[in-house]
Nucleic acid binder design. Structure first.
Lengths: 345, 345
DNA sequence: GATACTCATTGAATCGTTTCGAAGGAGGGG
DNA sequence: CCCCTCCTTCGAAACGATTCAATGAGTATC
C-alpha cells in the first residue's frame, strides 16, 4: 500500500502538503493540486485510518452493542441510530450478537476503538461500563434501570417506559372485562420485566384486584419458555381468563400451548404481549401488545451520545412512551362478562 | 488515559519491559512482574488499540457488511460467522444496515479498519470490492454471482444454490399437481432472483411445461411489492393455480392480496416462497418455501475468509445446498388434479 | 580463569498520519 | 523602496504502541 510519503515523493512536495490537499484542497495552489491529485490516483493512495485515529485521537466511529439481532426490532433501533450518525459524519458499527462475542465487544470498548457506545446487552456488566466510559468514550445504556446512569458522569440512559407499558396492558385487559389474570415474567434479574410487572399490578390494584392472587411465573423471554410456563400453569389446574406475558416471544409460546390444548384465544382466554415484534401482527389470532418505539429509542440514544461526545456530562436519562396496540388476542369479553355479572335476558 | 510510558515510569522500568510483560508475562522476572503489574492496576492502564494496530498492521477485527438485518435470517448468518471468529480470537463487527450507511461501510474497508470482510450487500459495487480487496484485507462476497470472485485474487464467494432451490420449488409444485404457474421475480439486477428463476423454469421445462406462457412480474423483494404484483396480475384477469415468489417477503404480500380478494390458499391457488424466514412458519396458512442455510453460510464465509487471511489466494467459491420446506400453502392438489385429469367417479 | 551461553532489560526505530510554527515569496500600500 | 499581509509550502514533533539488536549480569562448561 502506498503511503502519504510515497505520494509526496511522486508529486515532489512535502508530506504536509499532501495532507493539506487531502483535507482542504482549496488551500493548495492550482498547480500542486494537480500534481498531488494525479499522484494520488496513480498510486491508488488511500489514507490509513489507523494512523489517522492514532494521531487525531478519534475514530469517528460509534459502537452499538447488542446481545441479539432478532427481528426488525433491533434493526429499527439501529436505523434510528444511523439516522443521526449519518448527519454527524460518523460510522456505526454493531457488535456482540452471540454470547461468546462478549469478549470482542468489550475489547472494542477497552481499547478505545470507538468514540462512543450505545449498549443494549444485559450481559455487559454495569461495572465494566463504568470502568470503560470516559470523556473520550461516553456510553448510553438502553433498557437498563435508569439508575445505572447515575453512577458515572459519562454514562447516560434511554429507555422505553416499561412501567407505563405494563400499566397500559393491565388497563386494557380490565377494560375488556377480563378479571382473572396470569403474569408471565422475564428472567428474575431483568429490570425491564420488573417494571412491566409493577405497572401491570398497579393497574390491577387500582381496579381493586387483589394482586396477591395473581400467579406469576418466570420465563426466559423466549418462545419456548413462554410455552413451558403456560403448560405448567395449566397442568396445575389454574383457571384464568387473561394472560399477560412480559414480551411477545413468550406470548407466542403461550398461544402455542393454548392452541395445543384446544383452548381458544381470545374466546376462552386472552393473551397480551409486550414489544410489538413483527410476528405479533401475523400470527393468528394476531397478538395485542405494547409497542416500543425502537426507531425513536435509537434516535434518542444517539442524540444523547452526541451531546456526551460534545463534552456534556451527567446528562439526565430519557424515557420514551409506549403505546397500546389492540389486536385480536384480547377481543372484547363483553359477552362473557355479561354472563358473569348481568342477569341473562 | 495512562499510556505505556506512564506505566513504565511508575514501575521504574523501560517501556519495552512493560510491553513484554503485557504480551508474555513469564518472560519478565518475578520482581519486575510485581511492580509492573501493580503500576498497571494503579494507573488503570489499558493499551491503546489504535496504536497497536498501527504498529502491528493488524486490527484483529473482521467486518460483516449487510444492507439489512431483518429477521433471525441475518442474525443466524452473523452467529455462524462469530462461531468461527471466536475460535480465531478475532472480533466481528457488523456495518451497513441502512442505505446512507454505505459511505461509512466503505470507509471501514477503504481505510483498512478491518483485516477482512464478508459482504452481503448488493449496494456495495463489485468494482469497489476489487479495489479495496488485497492480501491484507481479503473479501468474501455472499450471494453475488460467483463470477464476482473470479475477478480478483483476494475476493472469493459463498452462496446458497439458488438455482437448485428454484428447481426444487418447481418440482414440488409439479409434484403436487399444479400446472398453471406465475413467477414473481425480484429486482431485475438481482443475481439471486435470476438463478431462482432459471432453476424454476428448468423444472417446469423438464416436465413439459411451456415456460414461455408463464407470466413473470418483477417485484422488489418486499412484502408490499409482492402484494402489488399479485394485484396487478389478478386485475389483468390472469388465471393460475400456483405462484412462486422469489422470496418469502413477496410471498407474504401475495398471500395478503389473495386473502383480500377472498381467494383461498392453497385451495384456489398455491403459494411458495424462498428463504424460509421465521414468519413463514407462523402465517396462516403457513408458507412452503426453500430454506437457505444461513448459519452454515456464515460459517462457510468465515472459513473462506480465514484461509484468505492466512495467505491463500484465488480460493474457489463455495456453494451450499438449499432444502425444500413443505407447509400448508402448497397442500396437495390431488382433488383438483383429479377433476382435471381423471374421470370423476 | 577464560569462554560461551542464558536471561532480563533496554534504547531506538518504526508504523502513517496530522498539526503547528516558521520560512519564503508575491503583491499592495504608503 | 520598505514594510506588512497573505498565501503556499515545509520540517519536525507528536500520537502510543511493538520489535529487534544490543547490553550487561550471572551461570555453566571445559
Amino acid at each position: 500500500m502506498a503511503t502519504i510519503r510515497d505520494v509526496a515523493r511522486a508529486a515532489n512536495v512535502s508530506v504536509s502538503t499532501v495532507s493539506l490537499f487531502l483535507s482542504q484542497p482549496h488551500r493548495v495552489s492550482e498547480a500542486t493540486r494537480e500534481r498531488v491529485s494525479s499522484a494520488v490516483d496513480k498510486l491508488h493512495y488511500r489514507p490509513n485510518g489507523t494512523a489517522r485515529d492514532l494521531r487525531t485521537r478519534r475514530t469517528n466511529t460509534i459502537g452499538v452493542f447488542l446481545h441479539n439481532l432478532s427481528g426488525p426490532f433491533y434493526s429499527e433501533l439501529i436505523a434510528g441510530v444511523e439516522e443521526i450518525t449519518d448527519t454527524l459524519g460518523l460510522t456505526t458499527i454493531v457488535s456482540g450478537v452471540s454470547k461468546n462475542q462478549l469478549q470482542g465487544s468489550l475489547r472494542l470498548l477497552r481499547e478505545g476503538r470507538v468514540d462512543g457506545a450505545i449498549i443494549l446487552d444485559p450481559d455487559i456488566e454495569s461495572r465494566d461500563l463504568r470502568r470503560y466510559a470516559s470523556a473520550s468514550l461516553p456510553v448510553v445504556v438502553l433498557d437498563r434501570g435508569l439508575s445505572a446512569a447515575l453512577q458515572s458522569d459519562y454514562v447516560t440512559a434511554v429507555a422505553a417506559d416499561h412501567q407505563e407499558g405494563g400499566y397500559l396492558a393491565g388497563r386494557h385487559l380490565l377494560d375488556m372485562g377480563y378479571s382473572r389474570f396470569i403474569f408471565i415474567a422475564g428472567p428474575i434479574d431483568s429490570e425491564d420485566s420488573r417494571l412491566r410487572h409493577r405497572g401491570f399490578f398497579n393497574a390491577l390494584h387500582e381496579a381493586g384486584v387483589d394482586t396477591m392472587t395473581v400467579p406469576v411465573v418466570h420465563g426466559d423471554f423466549k418462545e419456548k419458555g413462554g410455552a413451558q410456563a403456560m403448560s405448567a400453569l395449566l397442568n396445575n389446574g389454574l383457571a384464568a381468563d387473561a394472560v399477560f406475558a412480559a414480551n411477545d416471544e413468550m406470548a407466542l409460546g403461550v398461544m402455542q400451548t393454548l392452541s395445543l390444548k384446544n383452548i381458544r384465544v381470545p374466546a376462552d382466554i386472552a393473551v397480551m404481549g409486550f414489544d410489538d415484534i413483527r410476528l405479533a401482527r401475523y400470527v393468528s389470532p394476531s397478538l395485542s401488545t405494547i409497542h416500543q418505539p425502537m426507531y425513536e429509542l435509537g434516535r434518542a440514544a444517539m442524540t444523547q451520545l452526541d451531546r456526551a461526545m460534545s463534552g456534556e456530562t451527567r446528562i439526565p436519562p430519557v424515557t420514551l412512551p409506549t403505546t397500546l396496540v389492540v389486536r385480536e388476542s384480547t377481543a372484547s369479553q363483553q359477552k362473557k362478562a355479561g354472563d358473569n355479572y348481568y342477569a341473562a335476558p
